[in-house]
């Protein structure tokens, strides 16, 4: 099975610290997912309807959306019939291939932050309550800082108690400037001030925090739209990057989140947080499929350097490692 074998080959031997951490973080997802599939293969002598139903269930358990699962399984069935495979052990490669192809879907994938050609780059972080926006901002600032960029953060969450302090604490730990507003004030005003200050002090990147909002709260979504507008007034092509932060434990609602946030702001990427737990974050497959929004980063822990660029090969490789007989 072409593509994936090649990717795997290119990965073997690559043992940077990054990929180690990545694999370690994904360990739990991988082991439960692929060991289940292996178990499945061992249990079934031939590929029958029962096998596929079980496979369906395993994918569902990883939070891959129900309709997406149907698509994947149908594709696999077709492929199996086409190639006349009966031994469950041979099917693993097909499963991996199909998942890869469906995620990639001929689209251009990048995990690089889209930067302004010149001047200030503005990044807007959005997401539902408790997804991990503020923590991710700290991690992302740290990462950009290590790349030699000057970073400023704006505490745009004026609603939740203690949110401003939370970001300010991170900022002082990182030794970067943080623009604060009044608690309960207008977040757009904070963003406006931040842009002015960022331009005046000529920093490279401004990351704006926003209050968590459930995607069905129209007024809060309007507030977000306003923030977007304020940014565009000063910087017409901004925000250069709008990152939707999604908790890996999120279930089917993730698609709705991505859909609704995309309606308001042009979501350019996802950050999948809390991947160091047992959750599998399979919903990103569905989101990519329906909205073509790629995952850019994944959060693998609570410390500042626990943010990694999303690497599809490694993600699927991680999920399916056992499948490939290693």
């Amino acid at each position: 099975m072409g593509i994936f074998k090649r990717i795997k080959d290119s990965l073997v031997g690559q043992s940077t610290k990054q990929s180690e951490k990545y694999v370690a973080g994904l360990d739990k997802s991988r082991s439960s997912f692929s060991s289940k599939i292996n178990e499945l293969a061992a249990r079934y002598r031939e590929l029958d309807e029962d096998y596929f139903e079980e496979l369906e269930n395993i994918l569902i358990m990883s939070d891959v959306g129900v309709s997406m699962v149907m698509t994947i399984v149908d594709e696999i069935k077709k492929e199996v019939r086409l190639q006349g495979i009966v031994d469950p052990k041979e099917i693993n490669d097909i499963i991996v291939d199909k998942m890869f192809v469906i995620y990639a879907n001929e689209s251009y994938m990048t995990t690089k932050i889209n930067e302004a050609k010149e001047g200030l780059t503005v990044i807007l972080m959005v997401g539902v309550n408790g997804a991990g926006k503020t923590t991710t901002i700290a991690k992302l600032s740290n990462k950009l800082k290590q790349e030699g960029k000057s970073v400023m953060v704006a505490a745009g969450d004026t609603f939740r108690a203690g949110a401003i302090d939370q970001l300010a604490t991170w900022a002082s730990r990182l030794d970067i400037p943080c623009v604060k507003g009044k608690e309960g004030g207008d977040p757009s005003a904070v963003v406006f001030d931040a842009i002015e200050q960022a331009m005046a002090s000529e920093v490279d990147v401004l990351i704006c925090d926003t209050a968590g909002r459930l995607q069905n709260k129209v007024n809060l979504m309007n507030e977000l739209e306003k923030m977007n507008r304020i940014i565009q007034r000063t910087i017409p092509e901004g925000p250069h990057e709008t990152l939707l932060v999604i908790d890996a434990t999120t279930g089917q609602n993730g698609v709705s989140q991505a859909k609704e946030f995309s309606k308001i702001t042009d979501v350019t990427g996802l950050v999948l947080t809390k991947m160091d737990g047992t959750a599998k974050g399979g919903i990103v497959l569905s989101i990519k499929d329906e909205l073509n929004i790629p995952v850019k980063f994944i959060g693998l822990g609570e410390s500042l350097d626990d943010l990694e660029e999303f690497d599809l090969e490694q993600y699927i490789y991680g999920l399916c490692q056992n499948l490939m007989g290693e």
Binding site: I60, M61, S62, D63, V128, G130, D247, A248, T249, T250, G251, Q252, N253, G254, Q257, G277, T278, A279, K280, I283
Partner: peptide, 12 residues
Amino acid sequence: VDSLTGQDIVNV
């Protein structure tokens, strides 16, 4: 527990 949680709720 967050009601947005998916299948992993069982493990948690």
